[in-house]
Write a protein that binds this DNA or RNA. Structure first.
Length: 320
DNA sequence: GCCAGTCAAGTCCCG
DNA sequence: CGGGACTTGACTGGC
């Protein structure tokens, strides 16, 4: 079984390389000349994409081939008072450069839109905004030249005091979402509302790959033993051309259990790998730790010290 | 140059 | 029902 590790959105090691620089709407309004303000937004977005390319180069230099792109590349992209702003035109060339680099250096990249993209809302305005944000992600993927299939991880959404009803609302809303956006989606179990079993219910019904978040599962489950659902999780990936992916993080502390720790506990990870060994030919694990790439590099170091895993490259190894 | 406060979005929580 | 907490990284303002 091949295991490939990745990390999230930004680097603790590269200086001044944030892909999520921003301008709030309050700041935007304070600028008298609207055209100048829009040009500033465009400069920030271009800089974010430029930093994104630096991050990709940093990844290649360190043998990392799995990476989550920031979902905050374009500040205020979906703001209702900026509907006339065609943010894509000035970004066409920078996005193309990302795509060209990715063609030379293959890397699995995807997005995790912010948690206010909720597809199971009963409010049609909120659904409209969620779809708008997903359309931006679609445009970014197209601009880079990445196939849309399974590139956006989302949570199921709100519980609204009746989770069964909330799940049915998801199914209802799903019918109003265009196939090209449906195709982008993966669903993840969350740490407060929807468990693995509930997420699986939707994934199986609608043909959506499920991203298993081990930490969230520990925080929120009906049945503690996830292994009973593992085969079902794996099966949701049969319809995808990409290998199964999941999220790995450690709790910050017992009292602050849901928060992400700085690093990943290697013993916990090794125990987990031992459980799933041989169940899939290849798995991609997204390391979600406060220390981002530094946590990934530390985990790799820990694994090298503790195991005799055969490393294919600095961030991928084989378990027999 | 550091620390506290602000910003954005939805949901959730409390009174 | 309304206001505040939550979450995240970036940024601003006060000292």
């Amino acid at each position: 079984m091949i295991v490939r590790l990745g990390y999230v959105a930004m680097s603790m090691e590269l200086q001044n390389a944030s892909p999520s620089q921003t301008m709030t709407f309050a700041q935007f309004k304070r600028i008298k000349d609207r055209e100048a303000a829009i040009r500033k937004l465009e400069r920030i977005a271009e800089s974010n994409i430029e930093n994104c390319l630096r991050l990709l180069k940093h990844n290649v230099g360190n043998g990392v081939h799995f990476f989550r792109l920031s979902s905050r590349l374009i500040p205020l992209a979906n703001h209702e008072e900026l509907l006339d702003w065609n943010y894509l035109t000035p970004l066409k060339e920078p996005l193309k450069r990302l795509g060209e680099y990715l063609k030379e250096h293959p890397m699995r990249v995807d997005f995790h839109p912010d948690h206010f993209v909720v597809l199971n809302t009963p409010d049609s305005e909120i659904l409209k905004n969620a779809v708008k944000t997903l359309s931006m992600h679609k445009a970014l993927l197209k601009g880079i030249g990445i196939d849309l299939e399974h590139r956006c991880v989302l949570h199921v959404g709100g519980g609204y005091d009746d989770k069964e009803k909330a799940l049915e609302q998801f199914i209802h809303n799903w019918g109003f979402i265009s196939p090209s956006i449906q195709k982008m989606i993966m669903l993840e179990n969350d740490d407060t509302t929807f468990t693995v079993k509930e997420t699986l219910y939707l994934c199986e019904k609608l043909g959506i790959p499920m991203v298993f978040d081990y930490h969230h599962h520990l925080a929120n489950h009906e049945e503690a033993d996830w292994r009973n659902d593992w085969d079902r999780i794996v099966s949701t990936w049969e319809l995808s051309s990409l290998p199964i992916k999941m999220h790995i993080s450690s709790p910050r502390s017992e009292s602050d259990f849901r928060a992400h720790a700085d690093y990943v506990d290697p013993e916990m990870f090794l125990q987990f790998l031992d459980e799933i060994k041989g169940t899939v030919p290849e798995i991609h694990c997204m390391i979600e730790a406060k220390q981002k790439d530094a946590a990934l590099f530390q985990l790799i170091k820990d694994l090298r010290e503790r195991t005799s895993f055969r490393f294919l490259d600095p961030s991928s190894f084989i378990i027999d």
